[in-house]
Design a protein around this nucleic acid. Structure first.
Lengths: 168, 168
DNA sequence: TCGTACTTTCAGAAAGAACTGAAAGTATGA
DNA sequence: TCATACTTTCAGTTCTTTCTGAAAGTACGA
């Protein structure tokens, strides 16, 4: 098999794994995702284990997480009991999926927590400065949340013109 | 001192620390940042150590990181040798600073790495599918990079109208 | 130049996250 | 019902990151 393709692939897996770590995503999960992204054909758990040199438990757990995130689909070959996994390939749809999940898992809980902070603080005069700061953070996070929600519902083609306007 | 304010503060520190972890930021660093955000007055290393119950080394290291990120400024009180630290309070400016830093530290290196992947792969026919996928990822990351760069240069007042259009 | 009041560094310790692999669980077809 | 071919779980281990605290470094005024 083409050596430079192999080398390029493994460079890509490494890159994607590191990027994941930066953004709070398990490195192996990111690498499995990368692996599936650059394979047209669905891969089995055993193939993933072999390609990344990881244990069955690890492969299974991270494949499941990817399915939970909606980035990877289980797929079956007729006449085979074994399950295969296939990644979403379209980058914009991947982005939308990730945005929706992080919104739900991470941003919305922060909004709730900040609202709790304000509720706990109450309205005493000596809380005024604290309230003001937390309120402005909350407002920002809410706007970001709303925006992420809207953007991740759009077709890519509808977002591009806005970007052009912004970048122009 | 007002108990509910204390409770609200510590809830806020906890919340910000957890959020940091989600996004690949050291929890203690995020908590120090939170602590400084809700204090009008600059705090000394010893005050930070006391409030968060952490060691001198830890406090020193994370305060330095925050200064490196440009989120916190050193400040001095006249007649005192000790240094104090003060956080940027404006949320939009905080966001811009973080965006610029992550762009520089994390996004630009990914662009370079992806370009390397393409260079390694070369133009053989059996690389075509790989190239196509990596190219579309690269295009997306470049657009995100460009956009983050533009947005984080804007005044908040110039971004809001765009959001309104988008959200409408 | 020395003593004081601080800041920085870093080797080792602790905590936390991720991983392994064997055992248990499950589905299928004969 | 059983054997087979898989998937899932989880207790224990390994790896990574973060933290500690004492020692070294630095700056200043007397």
């Amino acid at each position: 098999m083409n050596t430079s393709l192999n080398e390029a692939r493994s460079r890509f897996l490494q890159c994607w794994g590191e990027m994941g770590s930066c953004w709070g995503i398990n490195k192996t999960m990111a690498q499995i995702h990368a692996l599936l992204m650059v394979h047209e054909e669905p891969l089995s758990t055993d193939e993933v284990m072999r390609e990344l040199n990881i244990s069955r438990g690890n492969a299974n757990m991270n494949l499941r997480s990817l399915v939970d995130w909606g980035l990877v689909r289980r797929s079956f070959k007729k006449g085979e009991r074994r399950e295969y996994f296939q990644s979403e390939k379209d980058v914009w749809r991947m982005f939308c999926t990730i945005a929706r999940e992080r919104k739900k898992r991470e941003i919305e809980p922060v909004i709730t927590a900040l609202q709790e902070c304000l509720a706990i603080a109450g309205r005493d005069r000596d809380c005024a400065a604290f309230r003001k700061q937390v309120e402005s953070i909350l407002e920002f996070v809410k706007t970001a949340d709303l925006m992420l929600g809207k953007i991740s519902q759009q077709q890519k083609s509808r977002v591009l013109p806005l970007l052009v306007r912004l970048l122009g």
